[in-house]
Design a protein around this nucleic acid. Sequence first.
DNA 1: GAAATATGAATGAACG
DNA 2: CGTTCATTCATATTTC
Lengths: 170, 170
Amino acid sequence: SICQKMTARQRWTPTPMQLQILERLFDQDTGTPSKQKIKDLTEELSQHGQIAEQNICNWFQNRRARSKRKQHCGVGSSNNKNGEGEVETETETLNEKRKRPESLLVQTDGNNNNNDIGTATATSPRPEDLCFQSPEMSSDLHLLGVQSNTRDEHLVESYNLYDHVEDYDM
Amino acid sequence: SICQKMTARQRWTPTPMQLQILERLFDQDTGTPSKQKIKDLTEELSQHGQIAEQNICNWFQNRRARSKRKQHCGVGSSNNKNGEGEVETETETLNEKRKRPESLLVQTDGNNNNNDIGTATATSPRPEDLCFQSPEMSSDLHLLGVQSNTRDEHLVESYNLYDHVEDYDM
DNA sequence: GAAATATGAATGAACG
DNA sequence: CGTTCATTCATATTTC
């Protein structure tokens, strides 16, 4: 039983303060922050935690996208054809719906070995997709065990360099 | 802008092989592939999966654009830089170095390990660093409920390695 | 602790 | 060509 942990750093997580500022900006105008604005924002938000310009860009983009998609949902679309992918069912038209109530829960764990194995990743193999997908991905690479869902990289050659393979009992 | 003509399920996804070839070509700095080259490439890449000329064009364009990372909302590269007051010295006019460093390959460079408080996974496994957190503590955060001084803002920069390879018998 | 959901990030494609 | 959108993936967090 070799459980493997992912070797990746964590992604940025906005602090409540950062989020608040971002949300406020989003509510105001938020056409699309100019580069200068982004820089400025970055500098300001940096005082509240680690952040990079890309984070802000991403945040705005995501925010806009999801906000839009939210409204677009539920217009009588009875036939929901998404069966494996997006389960967009959120409802955050309001400012905040779920913050981060981890005030008391100080889990300094940092590295959670939470490898959820089936996180909606079940891409059901449909003929349509296969038609547009690689033939080798489903034949050659899966032997390596690294057959990712879609976006593989020009990796291959090397095997495991999982320097942090930790197996915990389950 | 509102018209989505692709219905999304048919987005081309390069196979590892295709990507490898494309990357190589890109690295050779061939400039903008000529029409003939595109055709040729298409033919070649077709042997490794479904592909169209347009895909290749798009790929090169995207690649170049993101490589330059000149966009103000360049979600292309995850250039990490500490936003500790300074705003990126912009010392990179050169070609970028692999947006997504294949985690399987040892890439001990490119990632910052200065005051990285991210996961102590890669370079310096110091659990203590994980603990120290955001400097924000006295602000108008109280209206959000509470302050999370545990593990909020972590470093950014990281890459998903699309492994998910877990051998575990259960 | 695993499943479900929220959300940051990567990227092909479209737009100007 | 530069920028933005839409979609999907991976991971963080919450819930059960």
